[in-house]
Design a protein around this nucleic acid. Structure first.
Lengths: 243, 243
DNA sequence: TAGTCCGACTGGTATAGACAACTAGTTATA
DNA sequence: TATAACTAGTTGTCTATACCAGTCGGACTA
């Protein structure tokens, strides 16, 4: 029996449940994406109130261990895609450095894919793409210019509001697509006219150019993100884990 | 009257309360550190259940707007410090990336302040200081070397156990000192002998050096933290796969 | 005066139940 | 056959209540 809940323990019941579920996830008994027993099931199994179970699960949802889906169930969360891929590294990095990160949307349009971009997205030149341009700021100082390209037919229903939220969540939960991996290229370059204006640096200043290709489970390219970081104020930290 | 709660709105009541409180904070009607009305008071005011109020407040606590103190009340959180000082930034940062953060205490000693450190802490050379050295790891891979300097007479009673918990909580709650602000310096550097050993990188590898000075409300410096992050400027292509 | 106790406040934990909203599969119907 | 209705499951919201556990101040006591 794994009835490890002790109603008379000084530890709150919800906490005991929390640890039990977390333990099962960490031991791999509950796999990513797998549905966990329903709230009512837990309540009945342990002879406690459903609200108490909810409290435990709510905490785990807030900690990113679980996700709820109304009408369906509660599932073991995928490791946060964005961050695992280092996608929001700018935000995180800036926070870690004690600076206040922010993002300014400067352009959101539908255009036609040209050579390199079409190739990167695996579509034909002339196909429709979303082109989203943002400035990344730290303490209101422009640090990077980021341009995202997405194949329009892949992410139908995308709009400005979603772009300002989490694109990856939208893609996974709304469109049911699974993000698999990303590739990044780094290279040194110099600021061109447009970039120097947005970043408020002199034309010709050294910049760091980063191109990221994100792919879906089925191998299709999802997005191409090109970021230009000013070299004088920003230095990258990339963690190379899990070789 | 500002009874803006509509029981028959499609918006959940807890959400309406949430927005109302958040609004009052953002408009400055509720100041940082100020106590907000008690849960029972909200419940009575709006004619709703205390549990519903709790749901709203719990969300705001999770979002960092409020903090609860048992027996005392619920207070508007001091966001600046948490965010701007990035007190738990490393831990948060790594968690957000799906890595398991850990901290290894490698040195805890009382020594004498030397020039730059004494100046930074506003004390005289030769005065006693605590010197705490930690390695920050992500998935057991060393990521940063962090050295904290504290004036000994300011934080009497500090011990190893406290250091492994929250220093800031100890300072604010036990010593009754108020942390006010911090300044940070960033610079690029290269790994020296000691650092390269601890971080397991080659001597001379580029690293990011961050110096943070934290000050109390009365203007006295509380601590000087020097962090050395490993940098990876020369990595070219990074592939990140999801489990 | 100094100390103790009590009461009134705060948030923390837990219950049992109700109904709404949503999902997915099955069954009945046009 | 296609569609609508039903059903049994899920999470979401909300109530009313109870008692526990800290905090703090005032009244009482030694």
């Amino acid at each position: 029996m794994k009835n490890m809940i002790d109603k008379y323990s000084p530890l709150p019941i919800y906490y005991q449940i929390e640890e039990a579920i977390k333990g099962r996830i960490e031991k791999g008994e509950l796999q990513e994406g797998e549905m966990i027993p329903s709230e009512r099931e837990y309540a009945e199994t342990y002879g406690i109130s459903r609200m108490t179970v909810r409290q435990a699960i709510t905490n785990l949802v807030n900690d990113g261990y679980l996700t709820r889906r109304k009408g369906k169930g509660t599932f073991v969360a995928n490791q946060k895609i964005e961050q695992k891929l280092g996608l929001t590294s700018f935000t995180e990095d800036m926070k870690a450095r004690g600076l206040k990160p922010s993002t300014k949307l400067i352009d959101f349009q539908i255009s036609e894919a040209r050579g390199k971009i079409a190739a990167g997205l695996g579509i034909h030149p002339g196909d429709e793409i979303y082109e989203i341009q943002r400035v990344r700021l730290a303490d209101n100082i422009p640090m990077a210019l980021e341009t995202t390209y997405l194949a329009a037919d892949l992410v139908k229903g995308l709009n400005q509001r979603i772009v300002q939220g989490s694109l990856y969540q939208f893609v996974e939960e709304e469109l049911g697509l699974n993000i698999d991996y990303a590739t990044q290229e780094l290279e040194a370059s110099v600021a061109r006219e447009t970039e120097s204006e947005v970043l408020r640096i002199a034309k010709g200043t050294p910049v760091l150019l980063i191109r990221r290709y994100t792919y879906l489970k089925d191998g299709r390219p999802l997005e191409l993100v090109q970021s230009i970081y000013r070299g004088d104020r920003y230095k990258f930290i990339i963690d190379m884990q899990r070789g």
